[in-house]
């Protein structure tokens, strides 16, 4: 007889339900089955009404983030074998986001936060395309390389109690992206982004819980990026104060 695993999946059908509830499914066990495979098995073979997001199946697209036994994880990068022998295997929608349906979260607030920090190269003078690419050395690239690995999966927001308390907080990924561009030798937009880093919803709302860095599937270390942003914010404050005292406009 085939070994099966019980997976408790959170359901929320906005047409019928007032709040989420859990439904149990039996999934055939195999060593190489990921949680995403299990969800697809349920949807294909057992209940076609189950809604979940996924695309690449290899931790690149960042679509399949869910809470697995209370931890934010990518369903494609988490395997049934890791939960073998455990009492329960529970899959829920990501914490701290509104639930659209079943395991699908409404991440529009998070996407807005990403846009807020202007995550692109800002130049005071754009050079024409004919002048070629903006060049930088491997050492200069190395300074922000880790922070540029983010796949916007939102796991760090599900891990962040400050974002859970106040959704206006720009949060781990957006502040990391701001730091990523501020550290880029080709970028000249730091002074614009500092307004957002310095703001109430910026780096100072972070209390260095650090769980965001633990759950990041790409080892981006957002907690480090945000707290480096606090150092940048301090320096910016001192420079502005100095300029005001000298009778100049602040930067």
């Amino acid at each position: 007889m085939t070994e099966t695993v019980t997976v408790r999946v959170q359901r929320y059908r906005p047409e019928e339900d007032q709040e989420p509830w859990a439904q149990s499914f039996e999934v055939p066990y195999s060593e190489d089955l990921s949680i995403l495979d299990a969800l697809n098995q349920i949807k294909d073979q057992q209940d076609p009404t189950l809604s979940h997001r996924w695309s690449c199946r290899m931790a690149i697209c960042g679509s399949c983030g869910v809470m697995i036994n209370g931890e934010p994880r990518l369903a494609c990068k988490t395997f049934l074998r890791d939960y073998r022998g455990k009492d329960a295997l529970e899959v829920r929608a990501l914490d701290n986001f509104p639930i659209e349906r079943d395991l699908v979260s409404d991440i529009s607030g998070f996407i807005d936060h990403l846009e807020t920090v202007q995550p692109w190269l800002i130049r005071s003078d754009e050079q024409p395309v004919s002048a070629g690419a903006y060049r930088q050395t491997p050492e200069q690239m190395q300074r922000y390389a880790a922070f540029s690995q983010c796949i916007n999966c939102g796991l760090c927001y599900a891990a962040c109690p400050q974002f859970g308390r106040d959704p206006a907080f720009l949060g781990p990924a957006a502040l990391t992206l701001a730091q990523r561009y501020n550290l880029d030798s080709r970028d000249e937009g730091a002074s614009q982004r500092m307004n957002w880093l310095n703001a109430e919803a910026g780096v100072w709302s972070c209390t260095f819980v650090g769980y965001c860095s633990q759950v990041c599937p790409k080892d981006v270390d957002p907690a480090a990026a945000i707290n480096q942003g606090k150092v940048a914010s301090d320096i910016n404050y001192a420079v502005n104060l100095f300029n005001i005292l000298r009778g100049k406009d602040d930067a």
Partner: peptide
Amino acid sequence: MRKPYVQRQRADWWLRNPAYRRYMLREA
């Protein structure tokens, strides 16, 4: 029709995960 379910942070959020408990111990 959309009807997103808004998840409210529970008062005992910090008891529900070892990482949060370590953080609160440090704050304490």
